[in-house]
Design a protein around this nucleic acid. Structure first.
Lengths: 237, 237
DNA sequence: ATAATAAATTGATCCAAAGCAAATACAACC
DNA sequence: GGTTGTATTTGCTTTGGATCAATTTATTAT
């Protein structure tokens, strides 16, 4: 099902123009340069579609144009473990470069558009255009640091602190992408939040209530309005 | 103190020969190729020495020849958070490539030797020798996957499972490096283990006792002898 | 050696978050 | 509209692991 979608999109959008079709406004210079040179196709995903599955052969990395995805692996005992949420302007799939096999699933959480960046071509062009090589290493380095950051996030002891840090992080990323002032759109389920943060969904729900009671946020299903960012930052520390 | 050590080593070991001086036997091909081209100096660290501090300017990445290090960041509220343990054959410092500032501390847990790999030179040579570019991206990809793996590790609910997974992971890495059969040498303190796994040191201690009572391991201070790997794997799942 | 300091273990208590269960809200479908 | 299935919230109970405190075991210095 996902595969047929991919094929269809491929036909519809060969060599699409980067600037026109595949550029989230939030993309920073490094991604922009890279994409400009190597983008070949745009892929549309509906909510729930897989961009790739664990075990899939590596075909390249993906720049997220719009929408959102989660990456999640399967632990040895068969349970899902969400390892990250990804927004427009970010690049995913770099964990598969080494072994040429994807080590996790990437699933669209909303309708999403990504640009496929064939990695062989990236390498090829990086040799011809040295500044692009710098961009490439910077992008990969950033991903390493992002994951280190998640590790720090999970280091917090209390559920309250984890949720606060999660919200602050998401807020920052959404604001950077020009989303509505003070609104955090949770594009993932409570289940995914809990899984990601190592908390039961009930705990996630109760912490939202906790912050609501303290007049720090307003919760309307998937939309969270931040009323008191100062307090939220204090709790996150 | 660390700085003076670095300077001293620099003088003693300029342009040391890679094959002779800086090669852990466990280094895989990709690191080996890379190092062969760009290694300039070897750095000796004593237990407790910092290879770099958070905020230090980025001077390059480091291939660990022998010994072990931990990387740890400081959370917003000032507490330490261990983000990884690193053994001979691994490469650290790649999180700083993007912003050219180290985002964490790297501290030697035992007497350690590392090879300094200036990153500008790596890029330069990668352009001249394309296979090295592939090696470089593979090494960075591997680091991304390693951190994803840690995230999965922390996803496990119970302390017992976390400790089991931690031991299995360490066992595998040490065996790959040709360490003694069935012996896991804990080169880090219980404090570090607990911090890394998000557990109190008392819990770490009690879980070791738990596995000891179950005849799964034998604990002699820093040395853990695995008596029943099957059981350990079952608990880790 | 012995003292002093730090690391690790063990015991006992307490609490935050998990687990269970039931109720409510939402979405998709006929 | 109503019905079914899913997601979320809320209440209640249980428990795993944190915390506090004391002891034992290492390590370092004198």
């Amino acid at each position: 099902m996902t595969v047929s979608r991919l094929v269809k999109v491929k036909k519809a959008c060969q060599n699409c123009n980067v600037r026109e079709l595949c550029l989230p406004t939030s993309l920073e210079g490094v991604e922009l340069n890279l994409m400009d040179e190597v983008v070949q196709q745009r892929i549309r995903l509906q909510q729930g579609d897989y961009l790739y599955n664990t075990g899939d052969g590596f075909k390249g990395i993906y720049a997220i144009k719009s929408g959102s995805l989660k990456t999640s692996g399967i632990t040895i005992d068969g349970k899902e473990q969400v390892t990250g949420f990804h927004l427009g302007g970010e690049i995913i799939g770099m964990d598969a470069i080494d072994e040429e096999i994807h080590a996790c699933d990437a699933i669209a959480l909303t309708d999403t558009e990504v640009c496929h960046l064939p990695f062989d071509k990236i390498r090829e062009i990086s040799i011809q255009i040295p500044p692009l090589l710098k961009d490439l290493t910077r992008i990969m380095s950033r991903e390493i640091r992002r994951e280190e950051h998640v590790l720090m996030l999970l280091g917090s002891t209390t559920a309250e602190q984890r949720i606060a840090r999660f919200l602050v992080n998401l807020y920052d990323r959404l604001q950077k992408r020009g989303e509505l002032e003070n609104i955090i759109t949770l594009f993932m389920s409570r289940q995914d939040v809990g899984n990601y943060l190592g908390l039961a969904i009930e705990t996630v729900s109760r912490q939202f209530k906790n912050f609501r009671d303290k007049q720090i946020i307003e919760v309307d299903k998937k939309n969270i309005k931040v009323l008191d960012m100062q307090r939220l930052l204090e709790i996150a520390e």
